[in-house]
Design a binder for these strands. Sequence first.
DNA 1: GTCTATATAGGGATAGAC
DNA 2: GTCTATCCCTATATAGAC
Lengths: 206, 206
Amino acid sequence: MADSGAEPAAAEADQGAEQNSTRERILDIAQELFTELGYEKTSLRQIAERLGYSKAAIYYHFASKEDILMALHMRLHDFGFGALANLDPGQMSGAVFTALLDQLTDQILGHRGLFVLHERNRAAVEKLHRDAHHDAAHADLEIVIRQALSDQRLAPSLRVRMACTIGAVMGALVLSGEVFSDIPSAELGVLVKDAARDLMAPVTSS
Amino acid sequence: MADSGAEPAAAEADQGAEQNSTRERILDIAQELFTELGYEKTSLRQIAERLGYSKAAIYYHFASKEDILMALHMRLHDFGFGALANLDPGQMSGAVFTALLDQLTDQILGHRGLFVLHERNRAAVEKLHRDAHHDAAHADLEIVIRQALSDQRLAPSLRVRMACTIGAVMGALVLSGEVFSDIPSAELGVLVKDAARDLMAPVTSS
DNA sequence: GTCTATATAGGGATAGAC
DNA sequence: GTCTATCCCTATATAGAC
């Protein structure tokens, strides 16, 4: 587990086209190291070392270490809106939720590294949110879900099922490390979605 | 979320009797701060401040900052053996696994703070393991589970279901934050165990 | 765009007084 | 058992040469 360098990290980080700009390379390396060692334990010196450049070079592309994490957060943040767009607030039900989870599953499968990064650096990312350099127009998918889970107008059985379902998806795709590297992505996706459906079925009136 | 001081943290940390020794108080405060701010971001100065003592005082009770985390890890580590004792290696099946998860659910409900601490500081705890100050007689529940999940002799559908089930339990009890604080522990336990059973049922030959 | 050199701060850890 | 004072190292960040 945490086998660095074995897999091409750049393969899944192609959002701004495949222009291997220095900035993107820094982000790729940072994503890898932040995930492996943790954000706080990763020094800019280490990033620069792996990059082949000097430490100060990074400051040309990013104002601070925090800015690097912010950029990585933004990579993920944008994807969240895809699922949020189809979300009608106040209409959260079992059926809607199940559909939402299917989307989430696909997004995690497509950008797994980013989700693992966030999972392993929750404290640092939350501090980012608190210092709120991007409070405007910021509505995390996570916050929406948390609201639904806290909604006491819903039955406890439904709320707990929803939390279990999110956990099931996260458990199989994010927390599981490399244990499923022998299973094709597509198959993994089907199995996880099936599990989510079985989990929500008893509390969903379709 | 992460509402510190609102709940009596000492209430669940009564393993060595209720002797509020300085050492235990340090551990309780550290557990709180490590969870809230993250291990790396928490300084000994902060711990000492909240303790009312000076920073160096902590070094009387613990050899290093890492030692504090180790002590907290040990608090949890011991509980793991309870579930491990009933575990017959090589006999991992759906039914065995479901029973194991029931035990895990109860243990998380009883020591939730410790599990949250570990979840939010995976990098630091893993480094602890690597530096192996306690390699002897050390068999984490997590390692056993990871082995089972990686076992290619088992059907992918079973392996993924197991990962989903662990995730479901963790999702509802650990990752969920404070969203279920209005639901009694006992009810929460029943709902989670039901979910785990529904999840494992399709792949369990009973 | 990348480098060297350096300023500055903060945190872990030690020595030894009380 | 607890304290003050201090050492030392590392890491972020800046200034300015090339």
